[in-house]
Amino acid sequence: MQHLSEQSSVVKYKMVLIFLLGILVLIASFIASLSIGAYAISFADVLKLLFSPDEGKAASIIHTIRLPRALVGIIVGACLAIAGGIMQAITNNPLASPQVFGVNAGASLMVVAGVVLFPGLGSSTLVYFAFLGAAVGGAIVYSLSSTGGGMTPVKLALAGITVHLFLSSLIEGIVLFHETSTEDVLFWLAGGIDGRNWADVRLMIPWSLTGLIGALFLGKGLTILGLGDDVARGLGQKIGWIRASSAILVILLAGISVAVAGPIGFIGLIIPNIVRKLMGSDYRLVLPLSAVFGAALLTISDVLSRFISFPAESPVGIVTALLGAPFFLYLASKGGRAA
């Protein structure tokens, strides 16, 4: 008995340490994101101007351009990582993530269709298109991969990537017909956060907060679900209810991200896997930690994306893909089971 509580205090200690580490990385990348850009502002000035803005150009740049962009990055990263974590818990499958599940591509297709078919729509309406698309994409992949005796990593990945490719081709077709610019196609296939402003932050906050808080409440249920349906039922969990609310949360979290930033991939795949490796499968810890590390990873990727073809902007989705695809290979070479 004593042994057990000792162990749990070690776990707690470790958890706090990792959590602090995550916050530290996040803050560092956040400041880097505020400091690096075409307009040179020194490190010290960034910190000073962040808290006491003056009338100058530098302060304006930080407060109207870099800050909202960094915040969008943090929110999107957190949302995608949590969505990935929830999906991996529900399906008990390390490859599950908004991208592999067709949720990103579905939302993206609906937003592109909305923009093309109803040009006057504001972004607050397009969010609902994104939710619908996310739901449909996810539902298709879920039903495709769970036919014929349970969902294995292979079935999920094959179904997910196939649907992803289909939807991406349709997006490409729509964008090509609508406007022949390559940049548009790339944005809608890779996703980016350059040029995002306070309006986008305001749009995201209510939805992402709902998703975040919901995820915190869901943590316990998801952890117990991991012990198997029977055990969970024995412990008095309403399995159907957990699954349904998980689905809704995933749609909210991934949908709002895609509506604002396009289908940024791999964050939702990598982060929960790493966090689980560090922390074990207690989703009360995994989900909040995923949020922190997801936010940090997207912010770092965003900083890196500014160097690809400086001074021009490149979609951040390219960086997350370059980082994430090899990680996918690592998971895949373990048969999609480990980590």
Binding site: I161, I318, A325, F328, L329
Partner: peptide, 19 residues
Amino acid sequence: LVGIALGAICQAGIQFLTV
């Protein structure tokens, strides 16, 4: 699975080059 992952890596490479 490995095929999907290698495909994803190549896709990332294609996107990087086009940008």
